[in-house]
Simulated assay, not measured.
Amino acid sequence: MITTVSAPETVLEQLKWRYATKKFDADKKIPSDVWKVLEQSMVLAPSSFGLQPWKFFVVNNPGIRQQLLPHSWGQAQVVDASHLVVFAIKKDIDAEYVDRYVARMAEVQQVPVENLAKFAGVVKGFMEKPPYPLDLNEWSTRQVYIALGQFMTTAALLGIDTCPMEGFVPSKYDEVLGLPEQGYAAVVVCPAGYRSAEDKSAERPKIRFETQDVVQYID
Rank of each mutant, 00 (worst) to 15 (best):
L69D: 05
I30H: 13
L84Q: 14
V78C: 08
E181S: 04
G193M: 09
D161C: 09
Y217I: 11
S196D: 14
V79K: 06
S32C: 01
K118F: 13
P53N: 01
L179H: 07
F151T: 04
G74N: 07
D99N: 14
T162R: 11
P133K: 08
S48L: 01
K22I: 00
D174T: 00
M1K: 11
G121P: 05
V78N: 11
V187L: 11
E128S: 08
N115C: 10
Y132G: 03
K200Y: 08
V102G: 03
V85N: 13
A186M: 05
P62E: 09
A106Q: 00
M1Q: 07
V98G: 07
I160E: 10
R100C: 09
A7T: 01
Y217H: 14
T4A: 15
E166D: 14
T211I: 14
G183S: 06
K206W: 04
Q67P: 01
W139F: 13
W73P: 07
K172W: 00
F56G: 03
K206C: 04
T10C: 13
L51E: 02
W35D: 08
A185E: 12
V113P: 02
A197I: 08
H83M: 06
D199W: 07
F126A: 01
Q109F: 10
V113D: 02
Q212G: 05
I160D: 12
Q109P: 08
Q212A: 15
G50S: 05
N137M: 07
F168G: 13
T211C: 06
F209S: 05
F151Q: 06
V86R: 14
A45E: 09
D92E: 13
P53T: 03
P130Y: 04
S48T: 05
A103K: 13
D135Y: 03
A103P: 02
F87D: 06
D25Q: 12
D33A: 11
D199I: 00
G159L: 09
D80T: 08
V34Q: 15
F56I: 11
V108P: 11
